[in-house]
C-alpha cells in the first residue's frame, strides 16, 4: 500500500512538472507582453512619447528581458522553495496577496460542492437501484436529465432569485455585507456556510446528475451478482446484504472519478461565480488574462491543476484501499 502511494506520488510530481511547462507556455503565448500594456496604460493620454527603448527599460525593470527558460526556472524555483508565485503587475503587489483569501474560498466552494454531490448522489442512487421501476427511480431519471440539460448559470439565477425573494438573504457573494471585512469568527463561518449553499447546489447539480446514473447502473449490476445471492443464502438480513456487498462496490466508480468532478467544478466555477459574484479564483483568472497579468494567471492555473492532481491521488489511494484487487496491479 505504501509503495503504491509512493508510486502515485512520484507520478503526481511528474504530472505537475509537465503542467508547469504547459502553464508557462500559455503565459508566454499572448501577443505583446506586460511591458506594452504597462506603458500604454501609464502614459496614454498624457502626451508623453514612448519609444521602444522606454518599453525595453520597463522590460528590464520587470525582468521580462531575460530568455524564457531562465524565467521559467526562476519562477518554478521560487514557487517550490518559497511558495512565492511572483509579482502581479496589475495589482502592483505579490501574487500571493492577490490570490490570498480567494484560494481558500475557492476550496470552500469546491469541497461544499463535492460533499453535497456525494451525499445526494450515493444514497439516492442506491435506493433507486434497489427499488427499480418505482416512482423514485423514474423521478430520478427525469431529474438527472434536467441536471444534465439545464445550464447552470440559469439555475444560479433562479436559485438566487428564490433565496433573495423567499429567504431574504443578501444577493450573491460569500459573506453578508456587514461581515465581509470582519475578522474570522464563528458567526462569520456560519455566514459563509449559508452563502455556500446556493453555489454548491448550482455546481453540484450536473455532477450529481451524472454520478446518480453511474452509481445506479453499477448498483444494478452488482445486485445481480452471485455473491449477493450467496450472502442472502447465508441468512444475512437484506439491508446488511445491500450495504455490505453491492453498495460497497457501487461507490467505487464515484471514488475513481473524484478528479473528474473537481475538474468539472473548476471549469464551471467562473461562470457561476460571475452570476453569483463570488470572490474566487476563476473570475480572477479571466481578469488576469484580460490584463495580461501573467504571473497571476500562471499561479491560478498551477493551483487549480494542483488540486485536480491531488484529488486524483486521493481517489487512487482511496480506491486501492476500497478494492483489494487493485493493489496487485498498481505495484
Amino acid at each position: 500500500m505504501l509503495r503504491f502511494a509512493l508510486h502515485r506520488l512520484f507520478g503526481m510530481a511528474v504530472t505537475m512538472f509537465c503542467v508547469s511547462i504547459m502553464v508557462f507556455t500559455i503565459m508566454e503565448l499572448p501577443p505583446g507582453d506586460y511591458a506594452d500594456r504597462y506603458a500604454f496604460r501609464k502614459f496614454s493620454g498624457t502626451g508623453v512619447n514612448i519609444t521602444e527603448s522606454d518599453i525595453q527599460n520597463i522590460r528590464v525593470q520587470f525582468g521580462l528581458d531575460r530568455p524564457a527558460p531562465e524565467r521559467y526556472f526562476d519562477w518554478v524555483w521560487r514557487i517550490v522553495t518559497d511558495f512565492d508565485f511572483g509579482q502581479s503587475f496589475a495589482f502592483e503587489t505579490s501574487v500571493n496577496d492577490v490570490v490570498g483569501e480567494r484560494l481558500w474560498l475557492t476550496l470552500a466552494i469546491l469541497y461544499a460542492t463535492l460533499i453535497l454531490t456525494y451525499l445526494l448522489a450515493i444514497p439516492i442512487a442506491i435506493y433507486a437501484a434497489v427499488r427499480r421501476h418505482s416512482a423514485v427511480d423514474y423521478g430520478l431519471t427525469v431529474v438527472s436529465y434536467l441536471g444534465l440539460a439545464l445550464p447552470n448559470f440559469l439555475l444560479a439565477l433562479i436559485l438566487l432569485y428564490i433565496s433573495v425573494s423567499t429567504f431574504g438573504s443578501s444577493v450573491g457573494g460569500l459573506f453578508s455585507p456587514e461581515l465581509e471585512k470582519a475578522p474570522w469568527s464563528w458567526e462569520k463561518f456560519v455566514d459563509l456556510l449559508q452563502h455556500l449553499i446556493v453555489p454548491a447546489i448550482v455546481l453540484a447539480w450536473s455532477a450529481t446528475a451524472l454520478q446518480l446514473q453511474t452509481v445506479r447502473a453499477t448498483m444494478l449490476d452488482e445486485l445481480n451478482k452471485l455473491s449477493v445471492t450467496a450472502a442472502r443464502a447465508r441468512g444475512l438480513p437484506e439491508w446488511k446484504v445491500l450495504l455490505k456487498y453491492p453498495a460497497r462496490l457501487a461507490v467505487n466508480p464515484v471514488v475513481s472519478t473524484v478528479g473528474f468532478d473537481v475538474n468539472r467544478i473548476f471549469s464551471e466555477l467562473p461562470i457561476v461565480a460571475l452570476v453569483l459574484s463570488l470572490p474566487e479564483l476563476g473570475e480572477l483568472l479571466i481578469q488576469s488574462y484580460l490584463d495580461l497579468d501573467m504571473y497571476v494567471a500562471g499561479a491560478i492555473l498551477m493551483m487549480l491543476t494542483f488540486f485536480i492532481v491531488v484529488m486524483n491521488f486521493v481517489s487512487d489511494v482511496a480506491l486501492a484501499y476500497l478494492d483489494p484487487r487493485i493493489k496487485l496491479e498498481g505495484g
Binding site: 455473491s227 450467496a230 455490505k244 483489494p324 484487487r325
Partner: peptide, 12 residues
C-alpha cells in the same frame, strides 16, 4: 453455487 469465483465478494 456453480461459479466459485462469483459466489465470493471480491472485496472481502
Amino acid at each position: 453455487f456453480q461459479e466459485p469465483m462469483a459466489s465470493f465478494s471480491p472485496v472481502y
